[in-house]
């Protein structure tokens, strides 16, 4: 089944890995737009990165839009300390020849959803949720057009990464996350609890390069660069791999497990800002608003991911 798909993202090496995975499955994902957002690095650079990634993957036909350059209510926090100054350090990507669309990413999202049938568009969210939330505020009627939002966001059992308790995408724009979580749109959350089980061991990254494709080799190079921060921090034998959990969940939900829960965001307390309150044990009466994925099969995940990269240029 082909899903009309919009990718909202702030590449970032692991977001690049996720975009390539989605592009490698055109029978499943009909990617009608890639909307760049601010997050891992600033918006100007994530726009360039989206363009460069689509060219490398041989998909210059997919339009790229620039979304919001800043969070709703807090200053932008970026993560060059993880991703390097370009966000895609570790691979030598040629400067893109295609250009960004002039339409704002928020307007593009509203236009695409307005024109769509009810519950027909899948949104893959690989970044802070500012652009999606802004579109919901500007035109609340679009929410019903969404098949589901599959978002890399949050943490419960793992603790946070950018702060002790908060995961980066939610921390950067907790108010936007709250808007999206409360929107009524069907939501699947891929949190650190699952991405921290998908460790990018040397053997697994070598497998990407062994596909012999430029895209597989670029992903190996990029993740080798970005994982060094996490390898030093955690002392594990591989680094968490976040973004690709999103497309792979859509392609292979049977590789993952989770629960229907209420998920809410802390937006006031500074020490817990952006923490996701996940009612895993059902101790509140809060209504269920998400399927929260807490576990996955890492071996199967990397096997599928490698097969996907082998299909790309």
């Amino acid at each position: 089944m082909t899903r009309t798909t919009v990718i909202v993202t702030d590449p970032g090496q692991d977001q690049a890995a996720a975009i390539f995975a989605a592009l490698a499955a055109p029978d499943e994902f009909d990617v009608v737009a890639v909307i760049a957002s601010a997050g891992n690095i600033d918006l100007d650079q994530t726009v360039v990165n989206c363009l460069a990634l689509l060219e490398l993957a041989g998909r210059p036909d997919i339009p790229v839009f620039a979304g919001c350059p800043r969070p709703l209510a807090r200053p932008l926090v970026t993560a060059e300390h993880v991703h390097g100054p370009t966000g895609l350090d570790g691979a030598d990507l040629p400067a893109p020849t295609i250009a960004v669309q002039s339409e704002h990413g928020v307007d593009a999202l509203i236009r695409i959803l307005r024109a769509a049938d009810e519950t027909s568009v899948t949104i893959l969210s690989l970044s802070p949720l500012t652009t999606i939330a802004t579109a919901f505020v500007q035109d609340p009627s679009i929410v019903t057009k969404i098949e589901r939002i599959v978002a890399m966001a949050g943490a419960y059992f793992e603790g946070g990464n950018i702060t002790p308790a908060a995961e980066f995408n939610v921390y950067v724009d907790p108010h936007a996350a709250a808007i999206v979580f409360d929107s009524g749109a069907p939501l699947v959350v891929l949190p650190l609890d699952v991405t921290h089980k998908m460790l990018s061991t040397r053997e697994r990254l070598d497998g990407f390069s062994a596909t012999g494709t430029a895209c597989g080799q670029a992903i190996d190079g990029m993740l080798t660069f970005s994982e060094s921060f996490d390898l030093q921090k955690y002392g594990w034998h591989g680094a968490p791999l976040h973004g690709p959990c999103v497309p792979l969940y859509v392609l292979h939900p049977e590789m993952f497990s989770g629960r229907e829960v209420s998920i809410r965001v802390e937006t006031v307390s500074e020490v817990a800002m952006g923490t996701t309150s996940v009612d895993w044990w059902h101790v509140t009466d809060e209504p269920v608003n998400a399927f929260y994925v807490a576990d996955g099969d890492a071996d199967a995940f990397y096997r599928v991911l490698t097969d996907l990269y082998a299909r790309l240029p």
Partner: peptide, 23 residues
């Protein structure tokens, strides 16, 4: 370091445990 969220919307009474020393 451990701090407590005393003034949150959904996190009041949570211990913020800086296990990875990121704060």
């Amino acid at each position: 370091n451990v701090r407590v969220s005393t003034d949150g919307t959904v996190s009041t009474g949570m211990t913020v445990v800086d296990w990875w020393r990121v704060s």
